[in-house]
Every structure is written in C-alpha cells, then in structure tokens.
C-alpha cells in the first residue's frame, strides 16, 4: 500500500493540463510534453465546472500530438542532432491534445454517473483522479453504459483500459471481485452483442 500512497501523492495533486474546448459529452485539454506516466489512455481525470460547484470525471480516450510546418521540415533533415529534438520537445509550445469522455461528476459529496449539467470552461486545470477518487467513482458501474454508447471512442479498448486502471487502484485482494462485478454488468449491457462482450472480457481477464 505504501507504493499506492506515494503514487497518489505524486500524480493526483498536480495539474496535467488546461482545458481547450468542451461540450456536455466530453472535453479536450492541452498539455506540454507528456510524462511517462501521465496522461495515459484510460486514465480517470477530473475538471472543475459550474464555477467549482461540480467536478466532472472523465476517461482519456485519445491523445493527439500535433505537428506544424517547422516540425515537418525537420523530419526530412538528415542526422538530426539531439539538441534540435530537445528544443522541439521541451521549448516549443505545441500542445498535446488529450480528449476525454465525460462519464460522471461529483456534486456536494455525491457521485453521479451520467452526463454533467455543464461542461468545464476554457483554461480550467485538469487533474488526474486520485486512487481513492477512482475507487469511489467505480464502485458503481453505470458509467460503462455511457462508454458503450459513445460514438467517437474505441469502446472495447477504452473499457478494457479503464477497468484495468480502476482494478489497480484497489488493494490486490479486491481486484478480482471488482472485475467480476464489472464483467457481470457488461454481460447485462451487451447481452445482444456477444462478440463485443467477448472482446472486452478477454481484455480484462488478462489482469485478473
């Protein structure tokens, strides 16, 4: 558990980016060079909304590293020295765009799984959810239906990654039960789409 605590302290309290654009179903934030551990596909993140009255919880479903003409020109350069690469990566402010699917929000200490009443606004800080945030949010599995219904996300991969994150947030002895319950909820939701169900279950079985 000491490892879990230190990870929580290191990653959850630090903003990982700022809001670029949003709507009710999700939002996109920008950040500079990604750290090895943040942000990751399937991570749970949170963003303030309604002037701090609510906190939107979402799952990262896409990370886009933009290019520009300057970078394109350098790609063709032979034997590009490391200093030029470091300059482009560390000094130039080309934001990395991270897209998030909104799956719920917390309001007055209640967690609601569903679309938030208002999206976050431009330049708000985005933070990674702490392990306890993830555990609290994923104790109920209604958010899985939101992911399954989303049109623009790789649904099977995203559910697999999110469930793995939520499982790893828990003590080892609780993980199997958590994934079993998630599997049952997925079986209920996907009773008419056995191939998709099978595909997701295979992804989460690996980690049990």
């Amino acid at each position: 558990m000491s490892d879990v605590n230190s990870e929580e302290k290191t990653n959850s309290s630090i903003p990982i980016g700022r809001m670029l654009r949003s709507d009710t179903t999700g939002f996109t934030f920008g950040c500079l060079l990604p750290e090895p551990e943040v942000p990751l596909f399937g991570d749970f993140v949170k963003a303030p909304a309604q002037q701090g009255l609510t906190e939107i919880i979402g799952i990262i479903h896409n990370i886009v590293i933009e290019d520009d003409l300057f970078v394109r020109q350098l790609i063709a350069a032979p034997e590009l020295p490391e200093a030029y690469i470091q300059d482009q990566r560390k000094n130039r402010q080309i934001p990395i765009e991270v897209s998030v699917l909104s799956v719920g929000y917390s309001s007055e200490n209640n967690i609601i799984q569903g679309l938030p009443p208002q999206p976050p606004v431009t330049l708000d800080y985005i933070k990674r959810c702490s392990l306890s945030d993830v555990i609290d949010f994923t104790n109920v599995q209604d958010y899985l239906a939101l992911i399954l219904n989303s049109k623009e996300t790789p649904v099977e991969e995203l559910i697999g990654a999110a469930l793995q994150r939520a499982s790893k947030a828990r003590p080892i002895e609780d993980r199997e039960l958590f994934l079993l319950q998630a599997g049952k909820e997925l079986a209920r939701l996907l009773s008419d789409d056995l191939s998709k169900l099978n595909s997701i279950l295979r992804r989460i079985q690996v980690n049990i």
Binding site: P81, E82, A83, Q86, D87, K90, N91
Partner: peptide, 14 residues
C-alpha cells in the same frame, strides 16, 4: 533569444 550549445545533447536556452 535562444542559446544553442552545439555539441551538447541538451535543449537550448530560450
């Protein structure tokens, strides 16, 4: 301004 240290594999100072 930018200071590029040719020969060192480090990011320039901007």
């Amino acid at each position: 301004s930018i200071i590029f240290r040719h020969g060192l594999d480090e990011a320039p100072i901007c």
